[in-house]
């Protein structure tokens, strides 16, 4: 049984048909990179996986739970699915520590002490143990994104969705964030990444999904997809980005 099951998912924005029958299964521990040109529907697909976006047809389950956009269901899903955004979305009025502890204390009802221990452990994991009491605006983009990862991890998710999480970073800061992801992959975390980091997708990812015009155009083991693209669209795409 796969951790994430996506079956014949269709999504429309009014008349615009953005996802045209997506089928995708993701096993626990897999690292999946979703690549494609902008407008191909890859971010939309990711956002359908935890109820941030509605889909009109088909079905998605994660960890056996049906994905809908109802508040109750989204909150239940949040316990299994973590998400990291391109724009970090840290809470500016809370310290790094408070950012990480907020959801564990009020959603998982952990004691403050327990939440603090988890927060410190997660910060340590992303290499920012010394930033516990800093406010987000004092951190660099790369540090903020790593705090966002720590915040997601503190909820102990089964799968982590990453929505172009290095796209807003200065090039020299991208490496630190990717290193954290690589470490997570090694520890067996299930990762679904919408990404433009092709080298990362090829070298760390297990599987690559190439989306084009709202469809899964091609998919396969990461190294194979890049070395031996089957369709002209993927060939063109790979040539244009590598």
């Amino acid at each position: 049984m796969s951790l994430v099951n996506i079956h014949e998912v269709h999504k429309y924005y009014g008349d615009l048909h953005v996802l045209k029958g997506i089928n995708l299964n993701i096993k626990a521990g897999e690292v999946i990179s979703i690549i494609g040109r902008s407008g191909s529907g890859k971010s939309t697909l990711l956002r359908c996986m935890n109820g941030l976006e509605k889909y009109q047809k088909g079905g998605i389950t994660v960890d056996g739970k049906e994905v809908t956009t109802e508040e109750i269901q989204v909150r239940i899903l949040a316990r299994s699915v973590g998400m990291i955004f391109q724009s970090f979305n840290l809470f500016p009025h809370l310290t790094v520590g408070e950012n990480i502890m907020l959801a564990p204390t009020i959603v998982l009802k952990k004691s403050k002490q327990e939440a603090q221990e988890t927060a410190k452990a997660m910060l340590d994991k992303v290499g920012l143990a010394d930033k516990f009491d800093s406010f987000p605006e004092k951190l660099s983009g790369g540090q903020q994104q790593r705090v966002a990862i720590a915040r997601a991890l503190a909820m102990n998710p089964k799968v982590l969705l990453c929505d172009e999480i290095t796209s807003a970073l200065d090039p020299e800061l991208v490496g630190d964030v990717l290193k954290v992801l690589e470490q997570l992959a090694k520890e067996g975390m299930t990762l679904v990444l919408v990404t433009h980091e092709m080298n990362f997708a090829r070298d760390v990812g297990d599987r690559v999904v190439f989306m084009h015009q709202g469809k899964v155009w091609e998919e396969g083991p990461a190294k194979e997809v890049f070395a031996n693209p089957q369709t002209d669209e993927l060939k063109n795409f790979v040539n244009s980005v590598l």
Binding site: G82, R151, M155
Partner: peptide
């Protein structure tokens, strides 16, 4: 993004 971050962390409205 602030609302979405709250949502994906399981916070209620």
């Amino acid at each position: 993004g602030q609302w979405e971050a709250g949502k994906v962390l399981g916070l209620s409205f």
